[in-house]
Amino acid sequence: MKVVEAKIVVLGSQGVGKTSLVVRYIGKMFSKHISPTIGASFFTCNINVDDARVKLQVWDTAGQERFRSMAPMYYRNANAALLVYDITNASSFAAIKGWVKELQSNVPEPMVLALVGNKCDLESCRAVSNNEATQYATSIGAAYCETSALHDQGIDQVFLSTATALLSLSSTNLVSSMRSYDSVDGDERLPFGNPTEEMATHIGKVELPAWSDDRVAHGETQRTMCC
């Protein structure tokens, strides 16, 4: 079985729901009272895609300004980045552009990018249109997805498509920071720690991601006042 180990960093402004997103995916829960992340939190998860396994090391970073200068520490050697903004907050979308610039100039190896518009359950307060985001995502070569950590919408797709993209990136041999090896199932040398970690936490099928506008199904862009 082909196994790929990759590091993925979650970036974005404060309060856009980075931790909620990750905790929803990995912990399968949602809390309204998540306290701000301090520095960065570390999660691991395994995703099986077809007959390959992607082991993700997820770095969920703090969005607050004061940690901005620490970011290089967290995205160094990352193979993928989830760029999260809040669809009801235009400045959080604007901040993504800063992140992309920073990644482009500081990360030498190719990276899988995914633009994530979170809080899509707050459609009535939308401040960033689907169109604008899609266009921007295309321009930076990123997948685009809208999610709701509250209603658990779209999050599985984000991680699955990222894992799939990582898998194909690993077969190009362009990336030296990503570890990829073959292992015979059951005959795997387990590293220290809990062997259950080796079980796939998520299994996905490749039915893949033509993330076009109409795939991200949402109602009409309403022109309502923001709350």
Partner: peptide, 30 residues
Amino acid sequence: LVRSSESFKTAESWTPICLPKFDATGFLHG
């Protein structure tokens, strides 16, 4: 810090901490 940060409970964290009496000029990494 620990008492005020529920977020430490969900996952391992890697966080800069300055201890003012120990060394106010820089961060330790925790």
